[in-house]
Design a binder for these strands. Sequence first.
DNA 1: CCTAATAATTAGGTATGCCTAAATTTGCAG
DNA 2: CTGCAAATTTAGGCATACCTAATTATTAGG
Lengths: 230, 230
Amino acid sequence: MPARGQANGNTESVDNYLKAILSLGGPEGRRVISKSLAERLSVAPASVTNMLQKLAAAPSPLVEYERHRGVKLSAAGRRRALEVVRHHRLIETFLYEVLDYPIDEVHEEAERLEHFISERFEERIAAKLGHPKIDPHGHCIPTMEGHMQEHDSIRLADVVDEGTFVIDSVSDRDAGTLRQLEASGITPGARLRVRKHTALDGYSVSIGRSSKAFDLSQETARDIRILPVA
Amino acid sequence: MPARGQANGNTESVDNYLKAILSLGGPEGRRVISKSLAERLSVAPASVTNMLQKLAAAPSPLVEYERHRGVKLSAAGRRRALEVVRHHRLIETFLYEVLDYPIDEVHEEAERLEHFISERFEERIAAKLGHPKIDPHGHCIPTMEGHMQEHDSIRLADVVDEGTFVIDSVSDRDAGTLRQLEASGITPGARLRVRKHTALDGYSVSIGRSSKAFDLSQETARDIRILPVA
DNA sequence: CCTAATAATTAGGTATGCCTAAATTTGCAG
DNA sequence: CTGCAAATTTAGGCATACCTAATTATTAGG
Ligand SMILES: [Mn+2]
Ligand SMILES: [Mn+2]
Ligand SMILES: [Mn+2]
Ligand SMILES: [Mn+2]
């Protein structure tokens, strides 16, 4: 009967599937194909099929699934996914603000703990932090009621024009990249000038009033979201 | 391959077996019989046998086990058990001191989280708390190196004489009892006068300078450890 | 010393979640 | 329209950690 450990009803695995479907389906909740899930979760495609069938067959299903045509979250699934995301981002903020974690270490710890904290814990750290709206990477923290207002930021990688922007958020997926961005001053809220779109499919940028320019690869530019200057 | 979720190598289950063996075997590390483990962990005796065989057969075994004659921890097992206890008690202290948890809610949360926090998390909350030596129930927190100095406190239930004592610790196992003790002022460090050993196998006691006496059942008296007045 | 109760072990199952290999299905190119 | 490649599903397994029922050991009383 094992594989729980949870404060709530779901397993860590189920939570991670729900989060992945939310993330890959985007705010509009597009259907997500098994292959993307398999990649995102680093499991075999067969394992995904298996899990989706189980989730869809449950008494009150967390997903809507049709053979060969992908999944999307049910209302209940979306609610749970947003709760886990809220846990994740509150924990990240807490580790960064209260426990003085280095920015590049918060994600891994949050990825684990998000499944195991109680509602009380969630409520207490939120209170301690003054009910923050964004996490240290610049990502929105869903509300207790499960709402998340999206920024209409765009990926730096999608910018063709030169110009000045405000950094909205940076990806937390890769600790190494994050460390480098932090070192370069590329953190949420900073002002970023895009000097030119270099030949080698990258960018030359500078931060704040600094005249020091440096290069970002196309790869890295996909991990940075920006907004027009206010 | 599942049932992990852990920051370290063991599963939650294994950790809980090790902690139970440490606790039931006492500081001297007496052999523990399967039945006690089954009761403590709320699993069937057959499940205990199964687990002990697996733990003992591992490449570097966490326990020494002989059929029909109980288990004790190996050096490695003891080290890990003490680490989990350290996690548990640091987390309790943290929840109580930093997150303002009610005393009777810290145990349940710690019982879960103790298995999932990283070494960094352990180190950071210890630092935040100023490297505390005892938890909110009065229990010693093992050091990072795996040492735990035992108090030579005795259970109130073992006191025959009347007299005045200092409360060393209270059990965290039952939230209800804990809430009542807290309400009566029975907390670590408080001064306790034992008035009489009542007929119905209980105690009449008072706290501090108060003249108000109240009764404690023999049951409850087993959950309180005391020291002679300094 | 023998027996009966108690403790422990073995045998045979279940559920979760994952894997590989062997079918299927789909959808696109020619 | 066909045929192939990519995506998906099915089939068959494995590991963890439980459970119940049946069997075997140990041990304390008489
Ligand atoms: Mn996770
Ligand atoms: Mn984040
Ligand atoms: Mn535990
Ligand atoms: Mn405690």
